[in-house]
Design a binder for these strands. Structure first.
Lengths: 345, 345
DNA sequence: TTGAAAGCGCTAACAT
DNA sequence: ATGTTAGCGCTTTCAA
């Protein structure tokens, strides 16, 4: 270590000074450090200490504004703590996820993960990493296996369906996400159970399983619209599929909410500026990421929690203009929000 | 190294086998590796080799869909190469940027950077990192200092203004970005020069400098609309400020394009679904990230290029419905796109 | 091909 | 408070 020589001390003293211990020739060391633009080697430090002061953040889709917001929230919280964040994208692909996690193994001290599926294959791998892990948005493995921050998917989807039913809809098309994923499954189940409670027997044709991506949502919406008896309302289980569905409505010139009502899960950046405004199930985003990071930092710097914590955040139904009574229901809309029943003819 | 003992060979042989050299007891080693779930230590390897096989990706705003797309493009390209990506966010804040770069120093072999400002203070710091660097979207330091991937900001802004002028606008409000940033400055200059070429002397009131963020765009639009003689058209220099401006139009109930025409720089996820559709200067996004990453990987794995390369990608004006002739210009719109001159009264 | 051994840069225990 | 030294886990000479 050249710095030591230049400051006229041993390398141990330099190390000590840099770590904050009291040292006699502190100034000389500082000078030498400055003169030589010395930077401690992360690798050597990490090899010696066994820690990396790095946190992995792995999400299924970085272009999805929801995950972008989650990442931002997490990042904001991590600012204070002296950790570097490593962000990775799995593209909603389980194999990608496996690869990414493998490449991260050994590089990170903690992991914030939005798992692609609930399949438990990964679970063992996750445990083997031997580091604190907080799951975001999606569970994995057995219930309560890891800390996780979720939202009330079931309740959110239920509320959306109940709202549509309340408006008079009976034929409600579902654009669900992959049933192997937590939000896909829970939102689907929430919707189905709300339908059942309303005494509606859901036709299989009205159920479309998408992939949480925009093209999938587009195709699913098209299939729904092409039915011999198309739905009077559609619920899409996430934001990207909502974009696809809206685009399908646009391309097929379906009037919303005149001919078709629509509710999405997750708000969009311009959801309020669309005409009509997007009615959707809204949920905290940055807050979810922030909370997850706080949990992780807790297990990282303090002692790990005795048992996995599970946090479920609430959703709210944000009513804007994309829903109305079903066409031909004998209920007609006047103006922008008032619905007046005229009675059946 | 336990693996060596279990396979009955020396640690050197294990290392050799893992690195692909020919070894006699290869199978035994493989077995031992599998049995012990052995993973080479990144830190030790990095300490020994001096490389990290990690690439830093630093962007000013990860929630900005433009940068999200750039990151995605870069990530896609990096898949094949055995590099881990470290993504960091600087929040359009020069101090944050300095911190982030410092924390990355020593951890990465290459850097993809979207600089916050053009100030050259950072330039020296960047050089001192001693690693290949590719700049995205923004320059820094002296021209041609680093490899960079840009778009034709000047030309894009110019085309937007020319389009508005062609429609008959003379009072065009500008919502520009920070003039210290490359896109902020270049787009501003492009707009101003187009105005000048059209023989329009731009009033200072009609120039609002924003910060590339949504709230800034909102405020700027409000100020423009509050002018005693408000503009008949507005050009916003990026996507986030466009969102803010659109929201301002919505809140103040300004009819677009009836009372006000609007062009943005950068498309938005729902730009085509807005009513009217967003007319904007569009540019490649994922491609920019992909190209930048290819450049970086080139200097990383191959020999670095002899001199900095500068790639400037083209923009296109995407005409949708948010522009029309100025109100009171004696030009009236019929239907959805036809403009018919009636002559002045 | 193989094993022994040096050393990457740092920290921590030990001795002073 | 300070210097000496061992060793973190790996790769890579150097001999054999």
């Amino acid at each position: 270590m050249d710095v030591a020589a230049r400051a006229g001390v041993s390398i141990a003293s330099v190390s000590r000074h840099l770590r904050g211990h009291n040292v006699r020739r502190a100034e000389a060391i500082d000078q030498a450090v400055a003169a030589l633009a010395y930077r401690p080697s992360i690798a050597a430090r990490s090899l010696q200490s066994g820690v990396t002061r790095t946190i992995g953040v792995v999400v299924p889709d970085i272009v999805n504004p929801y995950f972008a917001a989650v990442v931002k929230g997490a990042e904001l919280v991590s600012r204070g703590a002296a950790y570097t964040l490593v962000l990775c994208n799995t593209d909603e692909d389980p194999r990608r996820e496996a690869k990414v996690l493998e490449s991260l193994d050994g590089r990170i001290d903690g992991l914030l993960l939005g798992p692609v599926t609930e399949h438990s294959e990964t679970t063992e791998g996750l445990r083997q990493m031997g580091i604190p892990i907080v799951l975001i948005d999606r569970r994995v493995g057995t219930p309560m296996g890891f800390d996780c921050v979720l939202v009330d998917n079931h309740g959110g989807a239920r509320r959306a369906i109940e709202y549509l039913v309340g408006l008079g809809h009976r034929r409600i098309g579902l654009i669900s996400g992959p049933l192997e994923s937590t939000p896909g499954r829970e939102r689907h189940e929430g919707a189905i159970s709300a339908l059942k409670d309303a005494g509606i027997e859901q036709e299989p044709d009205l159920i479309q399983i998408g992939d949480f991506r925009t093209p999938g949502g587009y195709q699913a919406a098209l299939r729904l619209l092409a039915l011999s008896r198309p739905p009077t309302a559609i619920f899409a289980a996430n934001n990207m599929m909502t974009v696809g569905a809206l685009r399908a409505f646009h391309d097929t010139r379906v009037r919303v909410p005149g001919e078709l009502s629509f509710v999405g899960f997750d708000d969009l950046l311009l959801g309020d500026l669309l005409e009509p405004g997007l009615t959707c199930v809204d949920r905290p985003t940055e807050e979810q990421g922030a909370l997850a990071m706080r949990l992780l930092l807790g297990s990282l710097d303090g002692r790990p929690a005795s048992e996995p914590r599970q946090i479920i955040m609430e959703t709210t139904l944000k009513v804007r203009g994309s829903c109305g009574p079903p066409r031909g229901s004998g209920v007609v809309r006047f103006g922008d929000g008032d619905a007046v029943a005229l009675g059946r003819r």
